[in-house]
């Protein structure tokens, strides 16, 4: 599904990613761990095409397409979704209008007619149930007045609505209490299919428990330095990153 080769990227002239190689197959969940500042969020933003980040070298192929050639909106249409670490508040743009615009933009990309109003509302209702998001949020501005936990649920709700092929969860678990984390993780699991994949950035064992990842990668100083199965995640949870850094010396 996704193939990242020798990826170098910088932000404001400072190189953050220094040759990342990563391959993610269909139906796989990969967990990305690493100390603060190692480049996890940068990798996420580069994948979705945030213009603040500059790719200086390397390639990203997504389902056979050169991802770096696509605009952020076209990457979204092609099936890439990112759950933001800090979801943005957009006062005055209601959740309903926001999602209608998003859904119809994707339909237009694939040459389809806009969704019928009734179908759209019915779909929103079904998807809201997945993450336990109350109906009244739909008339509010996007993330406007949402608590931290509600914002994260809202990210998974949007993921449910847009049905991406590949999802990036950038610390979606941070700031959630145990119940909210369970709802978000269970919601995510319900959306998994043998054709969809995910890259999950997390620091927490609880998330590993829920997601049962296929692979764990450790990013240090802009490079993936260690890879393994879920047990690597548990080892980091227990011992931290220092032992990995020691191995590198």
């Amino acid at each position: 599904m996704l193939e990242i080769k020798n990826l170098h990227a910088s932000v404001e002239g400072k190189e953050i990613l220094k040759g990342v190689n990563l391959t993610i197959g269909d139906g796989e969940v990969h967990v990305l761990m690493g100390p603060n500042g190692s480049g996890k969020s940068t990798l996420s933003h580069v994948l979705v095409g945030n213009p603040k980040y500059t790719v200086t070298e390397g390639s990203i192929t997504f389902n056979g397409k050169d991802l770096l050639e696509l605009s952020p909106e076209d990457r979204s249409h092609e099936g890439i979704f990112m759950s933001f670490q800090a979801p943005i508040e957009i006062p005055g743009v209601s959740m309903t209008n926001f999602l209608r615009a998003a859904v119809n933009a994707k339909r237009k990309y694939f040459g389809e007619e806009p969704i019928a109003a009734g179908d759209f509302l019915k779909m929103l209702k079904e998807k809201r149930k997945l993450v336990g998001l109350d109906a009244h949020f739909m008339s509010r501005g996007v993330n406007e007045g949402f608590s931290g936990g509600e914002r994260k649920r809202n990210e998974i709700f949007q993921m449910a609505v847009l049905e991406p092929k590949f999802s990036i969860l950038d610390e979606t678990d941070s700031g959630l209490d145990v119940d909210a984390l369970r709802i978000v993780a269970e919601g995510f699991n319900l959306l998994r299919t043998p054709q969809t994949s995910a890259m999950v950035i997390t620091h927490y064992q609880r998330m590993l428990d829920y997601l049962k990842p296929d692979f764990v990668h450790v990013l240090v100083n802009g490079q993936i330095v260690k890879e393994g199965d879920a047990s690597l995640g548990y080892a980091i949870e227990e011992k931290g990153f220092d032992w990995i850094k020691e191995e590198l010396k």
């Binding site: 095409g49 990112m82 005055g92 743009v93 615009a101």
Partner: peptide, 26 residues
């Protein structure tokens, strides 16, 4: 708001459309 614009684009809303929505909301 550039962050809001990017957030909307990530969800598939074209940049021009995102600008319109933000102006209307304002």
């Amino acid at each position: 708001d550039e962050n809001a614009l990017f957030y909307m684009r990530q969800r598939g809303i074209a940049e021009q459309e995102a600008r319109l929505l933000l102006q209307q909301a304002f």
